[in-house]
Design a protein around this nucleic acid. Sequence first.
RNA 1: GCCCGAGUGGCGGAAUUGGUAGACGCAGCGGACUUAAAAUCCGUUGGCCGCAAGGCCGUGGGGGUUCAAGUCCCCCCUUGGGCACCA
Length: 857
Amino acid sequence: MAENQKNYDFTSIEKKWQEFWEREKIFRADDDSDKPKYYALDMFPYPSGAGLHIGHPEGYVASDILARYKKACGYNVLHPMGWDAFGLPAEQYAIKTGTHPSVTTKANVDNFRRQIKSIGFAIDWDREINTTDPGYYQWTQWIFLKLFQRGLAYVDEKPVWWCPNLKAVLANEEVVDGKSEVGNHPVERRNLRQVVLRITAYAEKLLEGLDELDWPDSTKRQQKAWIGRSEGAQVQFEIAGLDEELEVYTTRPDTLFGATYMVVAPEHPLLNQLTVAEKKDEVKVYVDAAAKKSDLDRTDLAKDKSGVFTGSYCLNPVNGEKVPVWVADYVLISYGTGAIMAVPAHDERDYEFAEKYQIEIRRVIAHPDRNEEKSKLPYSGPGLMVNSGKYNGMEATACKAKIIFDLETKGSGRGAINYKLRDWIFSRQRYWGEPIPLVWVSLEDFEKAKATEGILRNLLPTEPVTSDQDGTTLYALPLPAAELPLQLPKVENYQPAGTGESPLATIPDWLEIWYNLQTGESLPRTEPKPTGDRWVPATRETNTMPQWAGSCWYHLRYLDPKNGERLVDPAKETYWGGPDFYIGGAEHAVLHLLYARFWHRFLYDERVLANPEPFKKLFHQGLILGEDGNKMSKSVGNVVNPDVVIDAYGADSLRLFEMFLGPLEAVKPWSEKGIEGVHRFLKKVHRECLQTDKHLQDQESNKETLKVLHETILKVSEAIEDLRLNVAISQMMILVNQLQKVDSFSLDTIKTLLQLLAPFAPHLAEELWESLGGKPSIIFEPWPQARKELLVSDEITIVFQVNGKLRGEGQFPKDVDKDSVISAAKADTKVQTFLEGKEIVKEIYVPGKLVNLAAKG
RNA sequence: GCCCGAGUGGCGGAAUUGGUAGACGCAGCGGACUUAAAAUCCGUUGGCCGCAAGGCCGUGGGGGUUCAAGUCCCCCCUUGGGCACCA
């Protein structure tokens, strides 16, 4: 019995097999294979200084189980890992300590890699990537230049969140409740020069593409809402006494007769002309006040609408009625035309405003139930048109098209589509990001560049990209691909310029260059100007790219991580396609996943890629909470460190428990006791395996064991495919409980169990597989197939119900007919007690399952 | 405010298409082994009533459809997430 007492020494087992996998390159993905491919992708981590926390591996374990399972099923599997390593924390740390962000980043990456490796993932480490690697960001810059060339990048003054404490511009998502996410400092709105990507040009494609994706519905819905497509009409209103027209956008042209006032946004270009002399002061006070409000204030004060009458009137194109024009900040300049026709009877916001300022509220859509009493205003549902001249009596929804057509005929409107989606502010005033590979020259030099034969000329967008700086207009020229990567310069001081410019603006050597208009070559201005009139003075763009940039296309680089000639070899892209499975947090439902789709779709349109959509199947793992049910956080002190868990229970227990916790997509609390449970299960497997006197038989002779085994094969396989991994583990526990119960079982049975367990607890499975005489790696063994014929027993149990309540059961041969089951049910003594004095009114038989006798009386 | 998702024992959860609610695990209780402990194993464990046989109740609450509802429909409550004057 000595062998039975051998301990489950997970520490040495796990070390042994991790070394074996690495040495033998077991998980190398083959670029040149006849096998079908399977690409499982995790959202790659930002390697923070805090190291991995217990939430990170949740998704990784799930994708790893899938990857290992698919490999056993005969697929050529790619499961890579990399680092999204640009970002603010390393830069903040550099400001504080003077340590170069690359040093911090390297240390953090090393730590993350060590931690991830300790969990034993089936990762092809030869494909590791890092967004801060010049060999990587060269291609991030390359994609940007393509976008620039196609006119999808421009420069504009944009209001952005500015944090005076961090001296940095923050993205929307880095601002939480008016405070910076990092450090919780106050932030304010500031207009700053920004590089912007024209994602709005892709609004329609991004919307359409969603339909074919196997994504969570909620994520698709969020993206749809973010893109915010609406159909309606642009309508021109003549302005009384002015030779101008006021154009509005409306989704409800059918309510035109109910427009009792108009509103322009405080920033509207016609406001000044619209404002009559005696209203000038009042309007000015209002507009100034609105300008001082941040967007946040404007939304917060939403409950209380305000506005000022301009003194002007428009003429309603459908009936010539005079309609007063107001200015109010509940109308946004950034959406539609910045002006609306207000229909208080059928729009909540207009209703509120009209009530406050006692403007007429005129119903033009009748509620379908005709009960005027009941149909409160504002009413936005369907109905028949009233008070609408010749349109009266028509169905409002159907009338939209009719009115648009009539407006078009008269030349006072047209059908229009609008999107909520805004262009993407792509620049950050920071050091630790990809430099934007543009230079700025004078108009004169720009014209010269356009006239110069050479590569540069072909890289220019049709419309020049310009920027006003210190009163002069500068023109953007790209760096050609041969000049990439444009590397980050070494700096002494990481403090931002403080003016809203990046630290790069403080390095004259890097900033000021001689630039060759033909070749795009550059030299520091500190060197003498090379001869020839093709060399001109230029300054570099000092903005860097946002962290989203590197993550927009990393899924492609894994396919060909070391290619110096191309972003990805087309042959490899054709073979691998996109990830077959992509897993990551739901917090990226919109931004990362929308930006990545934008770039991917653009590269597809450029014929760089063969597929229009990057991520066909997407899954969001749920959050793992602390044991106290709260979100894990350092300040609460409920953070669980995977290193500690692995020390105590081993990586296999960690993996198994993260999956056993509950449904993958659910938010669920960690439990120290719970991990002991799965650890006990693994110990049991270990013990049953090494108890060699218990599995001497060749063939499985116990019918029950055989049945449970094949049930387990079936359920585990299905559960992995459906990512119901907690259920798969439960089923394996049921099988092990069975093996423990019987006196003996076959070697084959236990080896099959190990194969099923291998994706979940790979180290232990390898170890036991080897100890049973199997040749490593277990992952090369073909996945077991369930023999479904074993699952049907000759005898079946059928339950008897009376009025839906369980009253008995009986054993029957599996091909029993309905009549004999029903008579058996009626003969059951207990059933009879419940039928006494009653009349059977209906007999239900669900073949092989149950009888229900409905009785009355 | 609007749009989604969730609510099942003491706890995490299972029940894939309406068909035996509570699989599996944790915790609890009782027992075996042990000098003892740990480890392991066996039994038990939704609530109420009952000596028992057994009965009744039970999937957030209320109503409904059905022979049959955790599952479908309506209303409400709680909770998590998303959006937030987008005309």
